[in-house]
Amino acid sequence: MTFSNPAPAAVDTAAARRRRRADGRRTLNSNAPSHRGDARLAWILIAPAGIGFLVFAVYPTIRGVYFSFTDYHLLSAPQWIGFANFIEMFQDQTFWASVLVTVYFVVIAVSLTLIISILTAAVLHRVTKSTAVRGLIILPFLISGVVAATVWSWMLDAQLGIVNEAIRALGGQGIQFLTSRQWAIPSLAFIQVWKNMGYTSIIIFAGMQTIPASIYEAGRIDGANERQMFFRLTLPLLRPILALVLVLNVIGAFQVFDIVSVATKNGGPANASNVLQMYIYQKGFGQFDFGYASTMSLALFVILIIITFLQMRLLRANESDNA
């Protein structure tokens, strides 16, 4: 008796433990009743983000669309005026000039950024995998647009800037980089390229590293030279990533503000660099015409959606030629 006693007890506890463990497993199953506590906790955990989402993303989006159909000068309540703002916008010379200036900026900045970044990524991929080198070229990404614009304002200064000193030393004529109508946008685009090319290169470089070496080996066996492999293998295989960096750069460039605000003093000279975001800001916060500013924001949003959509379609971003 005394000998057999501990045995059943041991069996009992083992069985109980097994049962408890089984119960525990069941709590991880969504059908179990004890799982109901999860839902309450889940809503508590997503509450801050959910409130932020509703209050600072959904509500302002709806409200922004509403404002664009109103006459709203911040001090009195918005007055519904239908499409009046849109009609005004279509007839507003400054708006169209601003669209042109922005597109000009985007085209220069994005095409240069992409060409330089693809080249840089390809070169990095071929000659060095050094993280230090990649670290150096993303430095401009870490500093603010305000800092970048301030430094380049000094370097591109018409009288004393080192760039103009160098041009003169080489026998050229000094250029009014940021103070002439002709050069303001190209100069701003150059600052944008300087700031973004390293960042974009790193993303493209990371994409290149995912291309298996065997593909290049196969290409080499088939007698392809370096250039053919770059255009026939690397670029097509990179298409999804190229689409991504293209979209990111276009969206970023369309909303350029800080470098314009600092380097050409709010869109100067004489509106030559009055990009859309600057015009919206001046309408809203210079003249407190919030209705009209919202209408232009909505227009910029629609432009961005259309461009993004077209780019994704043209580049068939979802499929690389790999598949």
């Binding site: 209050v55 989006t61 409200r63 922004g64 404002f67 911040l74 919206i280 949003f301």
Partner: peptide, 15 residues
């Protein structure tokens, strides 16, 4: 949704 659409209304809200 790019920030441009929410910036002005968010300013109004914060105000």
């Amino acid at each position: 949704v790019p920030a441009i659409l929410t910036l002005l209304p968010n300013f109004v809200l914060v105000k």
